[in-house]
Design a protein around this nucleic acid. Structure first.
Lengths: 200, 200
DNA sequence: TGTACATCAGTGAACGCGCGTTCACTGATGTAC
DNA sequence: TGTACATCAGTGAACGCGCGTTCACTGATGTAC
């Protein structure tokens, strides 16, 4: 819980998102935080312990974000479909308000460098992705009870589609340099959900 | 055009997709190809020349794939919408037939490590992403003339959505280890296109 | 209340290996005349 | 047709720096009695 440890994680997260894990050196992290190299190794037994801590923290934060956001959306709304639509709108607005765009998804970064990490790290990111599938699938099941789907789709695929659109939106945003793309893609997903349960 | 050069690029592409650019060493590439280190530097003046060549080749191949695939789809079909839908189906089947799933998108890999590269490399990947937007936007414009969209959307966003779904599908596939995800996500996009232009 | 000891959050110096890069050289093939 | 030269596709050895990691140590704070 030391504040130095969190500083290391903060600096490391943005460095890994910009340069990859192997491209991020311990020297640059300690220079940014203002400690010595031994200080780093006091907090993390080796570099891969940093990877694990980074990913764990990221996934927990993301889960809390989703919990809070959809809880707030549901407070405004009794209906499960409209709660979901409001939550997606809020998510899109939250992303649109980020001045530099979304900094990137650590799970995506890890999956493009997964041979660098041990089983434990890869399991965290697989688990996170599957938990998001489950989370949204549950929501979609509740919606589908009240609003029979108008299209022939597997609801697991619809759930995954949100992760895919979000991660893909980040990639398109980053690659083009157009920071607005991700927020707009979330709104595209929202349109799809509307069409799926309410018709065009 | 030497075949050694292409072998280096082949080995490097899969290594970069698995371990990132900084995590890929010249030593491992030459070991796999069976040349000496100096042989590598005969073909590439330095490591970042490799990055540039890798990305250039990747983007050209991807462009050719799209050209061929949608040309074939249009041969079977007069109508621009149905040609697009057939092309998406063919793309999804092509992906479903990949025994190990999609190996990954170099443009996505680069955008998660872009501080490692010079302007030139980043411009190639930005250009590629924008060219895909343009390519699909043109197709969507033609479709929209005949089939007025049923939903209120920007067609640039719909075009970007294919890149986003594809790149995001790869991430979800890789992270979960479920190789079928990407093909299924392309079919989700196809459903969205149907709903958009034909209604639910 | 004072003393002994333990823990926390680091420091400082050293190590050695792996990495990208350079440089002088080479043997096989192609081209000019 | 033979010889001189150029180019292609590499080899082999060396270099030096940056990287992750280790180890013995330290000063400040907390806890037991």
């Amino acid at each position: 819980m030391s504040d130095t440890r969190d500083q290391i994680l903060d600096v490391a997260e943005s460095a890994v998102l910009d340069k990859g894990f192997a491209g991020t050196t311990i020297d640059e992290l300690i220079a940014a935080v203002g400690i010595t190299k031994s200080g780093f190794f006091y907090h993390f037994k080796d570099k891969s312990a940093l990877a694990k801590a980074l990913l764990q923290r990221y996934v927990e934060r993301e889960d809390r974000l989703f919990d809070d956001l959809f809880a707030r959306a549901d407070e405004l709304n009794e209906d499960p479909l409209h709660g979901f639509l409001v939550g997606l709108k809020m998510l899109s607005e939250l992303l649109a308000d980020l001045p530099n765009g979304h900094p990137g998804c650590l799970v995506a970064a890890v999956c493009y460098q997964d041979r660098l990490f041990d089983r434990e790290v890869r399991d965290i990111s697989a688990g996170a992705m599957l938990s998001w599938r489950k989370r949204f699938r549950q929501r979609l099941d509740i919606i589908a009870e009240r609003y029979p789907p108008r299209l022939d789709v597997d609801l697991d695929d619809v759930a995954d589609m949100l992760s895919a659109i979000a991660d893909g939106g980040i990639v398109v945003s980053k690659a083009t340099g157009d920071k607005t793309v991700m927020a707009r893609q979330i709104m595209m997903y929202r349109q799809f959900i509307r069409a799926l349960f309410l018709g065009a």
